[in-house]
Amino acid sequence: MKRIIIDREKCDGCLNCNIACISAHEEGSNFYTVNLQSPDAETRNFIKFDAQQGYLPIFCRHCDEPECVLSCMSGALEKDQLTGHVQYDETKCAACYMCVMNCSYGVLKPDKQTRTKLIKCDFCDDKPDGPSCVKSCPKKAIEVKEVSR
C-alpha cells in the first residue's frame, strides 16, 4: 500500500504540489497550460504557513482509521482494502460535509463552485508514474512510501 509521506522540514512553500494537483484534474493540461484562474481550479492538497513551524503541507493521509469514512453516513467515502486509499463516490454523496468537519487533518472541502461535492485526494487514480504532486515537488518534501496498512 502506498502513501504520501510528508517531511515538513523540507517544504519551502513553493506550491508546485498545488499546481500539479489542479493540473492532474484538468484534462489534457500541463504546467504551462493549466488554468489556475478557472473557477474549477481546485487543489486537493494545501500548504499552510505558520510563523513558528514554517510551511505545513496538508495532504490526505488515506488514514488507517479514517474519520471521514467513519462519519460518512451515505457511504460516499470508503477505504479500499486493497490499495489502502480512501475513495470518494460523488454519486452517493449527500453533501452533508460531516467528513469535512471530522477529517483530523482538515484536508477536505466542498467544491467552490456548487458546494455539492467533495474535493478530495484520489491519489491521482493510482497512475503508474505516481501522484502528480510528488513528482512536482522540487524539495522532495512529499514522497510515496510503501506502508503495511
Binding site: L15, A20, F31, Y32, V34, S136, C137, P138
Partner: peptide, 11 residues
Amino acid sequence: SVKCGFGLQGI
C-alpha cells in the same frame, strides 16, 4: 527537471 509552475506560466 522539476520546474516551478508559476515561473513557467510567468505568474
